[in-house]
Design a protein around this nucleic acid. Structure first.
Length: 465
RNA sequence: UCCGGAGUAGCUCAGUGGUAGAGCAGGCGGCUGUUAACCGCCGGGUCGGGGGUUCGAAACCCUCCUCCGGAGCCA
């Protein structure tokens, strides 16, 4: 059985032991001294293992000298101290087996050189063989594990909220329709409209835009819960921060107010980034060197600093007094624009900010109305370089106020009957937030385009793979 | 969706009206316990698609497509 290369390089196998490794070739270099050097990667870590193939190998002329970038190889031999510089140990092979050849080396898309991220997106099936996507993949995994660990250790339960939802009223943007009807010739009602009663669910159905409403019900039973799964938005967003399919983390806590929610969010971010810095030193060093020189410092600073709390009203006042020329002038009652968020995080505080108590008219119906009757107990956590990374709120637990808000926003109360029931049967103050998982990865790594931190990005006109 | 930018060799790019180039990659040879090695030679192009201007278009004009950045929407 093959040994993982990361473990070999970490010193788990003593020099002198006989091991087998399996992976894909990055480069081959030949020496006329009668040996070839193979840089072998198996994805287990950032570094490659140098395999030394001597000309005495039976298949040296016939195969080893024909190995090109991308070939799959199994090599067995003795782990020895390296005679060359650049690595401490290497594998002196006594067998090198080519498990899979590269069909046409001339057009193999992955060359041993730096490719642009745009190009790599066009070969999404092969890009995990690169340093940068390999590193992203390991970081993504480490963060996902850290997310589950954080919640598990604090007594949260992971709730698998549905992907398909029949309540078309989640109110968080355009939704993808889920239907088995013949799109070209759907059944019609007498009035001529599409007869959704004939569809699979007997009603209109969509992909979820948020697990929040569903997870709230479990919150009011299990006390501390969270979702972590895919989310879908059919918005025609063409930016480096948006995807049509992305993963979202949404914790929900009972008997809790906005302050507790903000504290949870702060602890959460610090926890997962601490784990990342600890577990993926190799990859973070790579990002620091080749992608974003400030990424490790930024995370370290965030972990150490207490997040600044700022009232929305105060933030607007600061922006108004800043003397800064904004494309969109600041005014109480409007949402903060990207340029405003950037000014606050980068110029005013130079770190993460929790902005709380937004005007009710720019926030969702379920957010708890404050006593001033003009703001709600909402929060956004803004981070330098990425803007809003977390959005959350205390939820409206008073049925009469909730109904008033539903009516104000011209929503149909009937569609929320089960959500309203929570306010009738043992309602409690509760709160939660949502974190876009990919944005957290962007923040941590400095990868500029969100399409490069998810294996197969889904965006307008992009679903090739 | 709006604004701006870009599509030339497998990849990264140069080429602003007169016979399509470089580096890397690939093939062949040389050299070396090598490090995305180095040196020499060779092969490789509907210049994104369509239409137009011109004696002549990769270049100028129109149009469509694709990608990137910014904005909006948001996570």
């Amino acid at each position: 059985m093959a040994t993982r290369i990361a473990l070999v390089l970490a010193g788990q196998e003593p020099v002198g032991s006989r091991i087998t490794v399996e992976g894909w070739i990055r480069t081959r270099r030949d020496s006329k001294a009668g040996l070839s050097f193979l840089a072998l990667h198996d994805g287990s870590g950032h570094e490659a293992l140098q395999v030394v193939a001597p000309k005495e190998l039976a298949n040296y002329e016939s195969e080893v000298l024909k190995i090109t970038t991308g070939c799959a190889v199994r090599a067995t031999g003795e782990l020895v101290a390296s005679q060359g510089k650049g690595q401490t140990v290497e594998l002196r092979a006594d067998t090198v087996e080519v498990v899979g050849w590269v069909d046409d080396p001339d057009t193999y898309p992955m060359q041993p050189k730096r490719h642009t991220m745009e190009y790599l997106r066009e070969v999404a099936h092969l890009r995990p063989r690169t340093n940068v996507i390999g590193a992203v993949t390991r970081v993504r995994h480490a963060l996902a594990q850290a997310v589950h660990r954080f919640f598990h250790e604090r007594g949260f339960f992971w709730i698998h909220t549905p992907i398909i939802t029949a309540s078309d009223a989640e109110g968080a943007g355009q939704m993808f329709r889920v239907s088995t009807l013949d799109a070209a010739n759907p059944p019609r009602t007498p009035a001529g409209g599409v007869d959704w009663d004939k569809d699979f669910f007997g009603r209109e159905a969509h992909l979820t835009v948020s697990g929040q409403l569903n997870v709230e019900t479990y919150c009011l039973a299990m006390s501390k819960v969270y979702t972590f799964g895919p989310t879908f938005r059919a918005e025609n967003s063409n930016t480096r921060r948006h995807l049509a399919e992305f993963w979202m983390i949404e914790p929900e806590i009972a008997f809790a107010d906005l302050a507790a929610d903000a504290q949870l969010a702060e602890d959460f971010l610090k926890s997962i980034f601490t784990a990342l810095l600890d577990e993926r030193k190799d990859d973070m060093a790579f990002f620091e060197k080749f992608v974003d020189a400030g990424c490790r410092k930024r995370l370290a600073a965030m972990i150490e600093t207490k997040f600044t709390r700022m009232d929305y009203t105060e933030a607007v006042a600061i922006l108004e007094k800043s003397g800064e020329k904004f494309e969109f002038p600041v005014k109480w009652g409007m949402d903060l624009q990207s340029e405003h968020e950037r000014y606050l995080t980068e110029k005013v505080v130079n770190g993460p900010i929790v902005v709380v108590n937004y005007p009710k008219d720019i926030k969702a119906f379920y957010m708890r109305l404050n006593d001033d009757e003009r703001t709600v107990a909402a929060m956004d956590i803004l981070a330098p370089g990425i803007g809003e990374i977390i959005g959350g709120s205390q939820r409206e637990e008073r049925l009469d106020v909730l109904d008033r808000r539903i009516a104000e926003m011209h929503l149909d109360a009937k569609g929320y009957w089960w959500y309203r029931d929570l306010r009738r049967y043992g309602t409690v103050p509760h709160a939660g937030f949502g974190l876009g998982f990919e944005r957290a990865i962007q923040y941590a790594t400095g990868i500029e385009n969100i399409r490069d931190v998810i294996p197969y990005p889904r965006a307008p006109r992009q679903a090739e793979f």
